[in-house]
Write a protein that binds this DNA or RNA. Structure first.
Lengths: 138, 138
DNA sequence: TTTTCTGCAAAGGGTTTGCATCGGT
DNA sequence: ACCGATGCAAACCCTTTGCAGAAAA
């Protein structure tokens, strides 16, 4: 099923690659760092190297299977590219990543770029958020 | 004139700090990496260490004198905090950084976060752009 | 003089790469 | 069997830190 994706990308269907794809598909968290994936595979007694995880993720990115995001905090996170574009909110208290999409913001970005004579090739929008305090009892 | 800013931040007025501030104020490019600043000071025969540049920039950031941005490309860039918030466009062909501000986008961000029960503490919006091709002669 | 700051070099964290071996096809 | 993929360790890049000497206050 996904083996075909790998083959289409010109990549041999190897155990590490399948395991990493599987991890990205089945993990509760949709956004994982290389280290996250590595740790989880090790915990499952899969014998992979961290270098391989990085290499494979980079290949997946080139193949369009995966997207890489550089949120704050030094390490990149990867998510399966399931198609529809979206941006991200990161909870500052838990680190949880929430996806959102705003047609209006997308349009405004293009409009603004156009006003400066540019077209938007890529963009990165991340909101760092905290839970809204409960409204004080009125 | 700026010495006071340093003193207010509880920082001694030293040569490296003044030079770095000056560099950020007078450089054509308003967005510089630590390495950029270091190189330029060395070229001006100022005897600073790269570590000092990093330390000073970090202190300036804490003091609110400077903002740090993590665009793509591995290294952070710093700009003088001249007050009004703005976001950035990065030209993919030249690396040039262009500032912009959109009240509408700011509002939409807050509205969206609120809809999820959050308040926006920080945000990062970067458009990676290319010059708009000349309209084909019609 | 006291305290903070500096430069240097070494350490650090995330990521990439060289190389011999291993594994798909 | 062939060629690409893997694991390990070393290398890398940017950034931070420890420490003894230097410079503000």
């Amino acid at each position: 099923m996904e083996s075909s994706d790998l083959r289409n990308a010109g990549l041999k269907v190897t155990l590490p690659r399948l395991k990493i794809l599987e991890m990205l598909e089945n993990s509760e968290a949709r956004h994982l760092s290389a280290e996250d994936i590595y740790r989880r595979l090790i915990d499952l007694n899969e014998d992979v190297g961290l270098a391989t995880v990085y290499r494979v993720l980079t290949q997946f990115e080139s193949a369009g299977l995966v997207q890489r995001h550089n949120f704050e905090g030094g390490h990149a996170v990867f998510e399966l590219d399931r198609g529809p574009h979206h941006d991200h909110m990161v909870r500052l208290d838990t680190g949880e990543v929430i996806e959102f999409f705003s047609e209006e913001i997308e349009k405004l970005q293009q409009t603004i770029a156009a006003k400066h004579g540019f077209i938007v090739e890529e963009h990165s929008l991340v909101l760092y958020v905290r839970p809204k305090p409960k409204a004080a009892h009125s």
